[in-house]
Design a protein around this nucleic acid. Structure first.
Lengths: 349, 349
DNA sequence: CTGAAAGCGCTAACAG
DNA sequence: CTGTTAGCGCTTTCAG
């Protein structure tokens, strides 16, 4: 391993001078000496030991990510957003994965074991001297177990802490659903069926609020028999679509793309044309949504942006020694594709 | 920050003793003293500074992952596998994301900029004293740009280096396709249509080899008009399914699930029943494949296992100072679901 | 312009 | 059983 010391010996200067030159400190050595030092360093392929530097400077330039489950579809995009921002600011990332979904396959129960696992990971990261920590949930919900004793900035992505102790960044489910509903109403739909996720889900509840509020604002009834609960999987969409078709809805708002794809399936079997006989909206903008003919209208959550914002909050808190606890809701992007058709008598909003 | 030194002062022993006690060195102090040291450490919430330890021991217990693109669907599962293995062995992960797919949206061209980016990331990780490096591709192919001068174990996941300089772990596309084909033949299918990816793709070529080999071994013709090339996206599957249906195939082997979902779509429109009138196999075992009725048969690539193996290779090389360059092909798992039906005159294999 | 010295927090001989 | 000493590789006053 080639160190600063070796270069110093070779160039007959002190380590301090080498350090200064290598760090571009102006006037740290004569033109000639500086050049020589640089050359030797390059030829020997010198690489600074960042651990030593961090130790000395008491600054690791590293932030930690604790992901509830990296393999759940939104997580990578959020991590990617965090990474982008960190890269721009010269920060490295260390990653830990709780593997919650896989490990326990639980959806809503936060057990004491989660807490232990989290604490162990947090401790470990603190020991590695991370300057900030981002907790990435795999679906939006209140996280009941708080990390004990963190003395670095901590931010929640795609979930939020009990009692709002730390800041969190989510997207605005309610507004997105409101907007989708209004859009459907603007296209003339009066009879809109909804395929929700499980009733206990945060997403279901928030989106349902958006839906009913939009209906109410347009003085339309949100008929309870048209609001059905699936399990996020395709078959439930397929099944519930049948009920909704029978009820004569002209549009279906499915709370995710997977279930919406089931609606396509049933429509094809019944000889109904999506975008003509039945309008359809999904949620998530997953890659399957792009492939359908006619294209599936859907809502794109700002996952990348959630990551970026988290990183920015963390970096900001680190810099200014501030601490926050705000909940931030970022807006989604609505993609209206050909799965939505106009019903006669449409009104202008 | 509470350090070993502070604990030493408080307990009136030397830092060495504290270190020894805290590291569980038997007989480092008297029973009483040891207990006292432990208590003080706990009460003050002492946390070792892993940076300092690593510096001293010249061992970081960290490995680096360089992902070509974290947001491409197989990557997270591979990273998860790496993580699992590392966790079991007390290793941390630092993650860098080249964002190749997003940044350049290129599929097959490896440009000099890639090389620069890779080199920068490798240097950075080496500087952070990683003990090994895993490069995770976002699709299988030969990587032309090799990292310059790595003095730590380096392994490729889901791709392989030019000239086989480093070891790599992939899955066995050819065998998987061979097995699927044989399975279809065993179910009585003679006329099998294939929807490939782009002709230039490694996956396309390897799977096609498997297909034609299986057909040949059963003395069946692999008619070239039944081998069509899509672009991995759903619409191409939908479109090409039409051609294949017209050619009278009894089964379609689509080289990914997305295109296979297009086959479902067209079949529904034409009133053909998947699993009865037309049998169908996909590839990738993505979550959409689980949702179709009848269930989509597909091939599950051992992504998690690829990650695990890479980590094991790295850890092994680190331990034994070996160096390898083997290419490893792990077997896929075939999921036969109801999208495959039996054609009369089926033969037993 | 250059260097000596101190020290980040920790571990590891070695001596007592 | 306990402490002294040295040093990992680097940065940073401060003096010359």
């Amino acid at each position: 391993m080639v160190t600063i010391k070796k270069i110093a010996q070779l160039t007959r200067v002190s380590v301090a001078t080498v350090s200064n030159v290598l760090n571009g400190k102006a006037g740290a050595a004569s033109e000639a000496k500086a050049r020589e030092i640089m050359d030797v360093a390059r030829n020997l392929h010198y690489m600074p030991n960042l651990l030593a530097r961090s130790l000395k400077q008491r600054k690791s330039n590293t932030i930690g990510i604790i992901a509830e489950d990296l393999t759940v579809f939104n997580t990578p995009e959020i991590v990617d957003g965090i990474e982008t921002s960190c890269e721009e600011n010269g920060y490295e990332i260390i990653l830990a994965n709780m593997r919650l979904f896989k490990r326990y396959n639980n959806d809503f129960t936060d057990t004491p074991r989660h807490h232990e696992l989290l604490d162990a990971m947090v401790r470990n990261m603190i020991a590695k001297q991370v300057e900030g920590l981002i907790y990435v949930g795999y679906h939006c919900r209140e996280i009941a177990y708080l990390p004990s004793r963190v003395q670095v900035p901590f931010v929640y992505a795609y979930c939020y802490p009990k009692e709002g102790i730390y800041p969190s960044v989510m997207y605005d489910d309610e507004k997105a659903a409101f907007d989708v509903t209004e859009l459907l109403v603007a296209r003339g739909h009066r009879n809109i069926g909804v395929i929700c996720g499980p009733a206990a889900s945060y997403h279901t509840q928030a989106r349902l609020r958006g839906f009913t509020r939009a209906m109410a604002e347009h003085s339309l009834p949100a008929r309870s028999e048209c609001i059905l609960y699936g399990d996020w999987e395709r078959p439930s969409g397929y099944r519930l679509a049948g009920t909704l078709f029978d009820l004569g809805v002209s549009a279906v708002f499915s709370f995710n793309d997977l279930m919406a794809s089931g609606v396509y399936g049933l429509a094809a079997e019944r000889g109904l044309q999506i975008g003509k006989d039945i309008s359809l909206f999904g949620f998530d903008n997953r890659d399957i949504s792009q492939g359908y003919i006619p294209g599936m209208s859907t809502v794109e959550p700002p996952l990348h942006e959630i990551g970026r914002r988290c990183a920015e909050i963390i970096l900001g808190q680190m810099k200014h020694h501030r601490t926050g606890k705000k909940r931030i809701y970022l807006p989604c992007t609505i993609h209206e594709r050909n799965s939505v058709g106009v019903v006669s008598g449409s009104l202008e909003l």
